[in-house]
Amino acid sequence: MSRHDAARLSPHLPADSDGPVFAAPWQAQAFAMVVALHERGLFSWDEWAHTLSTELKAPDAAADGSDYYDCWLRALERMLASKGVVGAPEIDDLTEAWHRAARATPHGRPILLENDPGA
């Protein structure tokens, strides 16, 4: 099955002739959070473009742009830290809680943060 066919078969990923626009649901979520926070006025689009650009130009960024949404997410975290909204330690802690909740959730059930045995 070609990449294009795979994209068409995946019901929630938008596709174009280059394949899916988002390669995974988390990319769409990260994209939408930035759009929503900008609409709320947390930052200007110009500020965002510069923050994203800094991540895209980092020396370890992939030459083929395959880590675009990884850069996008790092830029979002950097922006949130610079605006005093949330820092990396708080995000790290909650990420770990989600991982624990995922491991503690039986297959086929929705993963809920309440399932975190370490909470």
């Binding site: 995974a24 649901p25 988390w26 979520q29 990260a30 959070m33 929503a36 926070l37 709320r40 947390l42 949404y69 990884d70 997410l73 979002l76 975290e77 949130l80 909204v85 949330v86 708080e90 995000i91 909650l94 990420t95 809680a97 989600w98 991982h99 995922a102 943060l113």
Partner: peptide, 20 residues
């Protein structure tokens, strides 16, 4: 990455900055 995005979404929702 998925867990990290979920964590961020949870934090931003709790702070009232985004609506899921």
């Amino acid at each position: 990455m998925a867990a990290r995005v979920r964590a961020l979404e949870t934090i931003l929702t709790q702070k009232g900055l985004i609506d899921p």
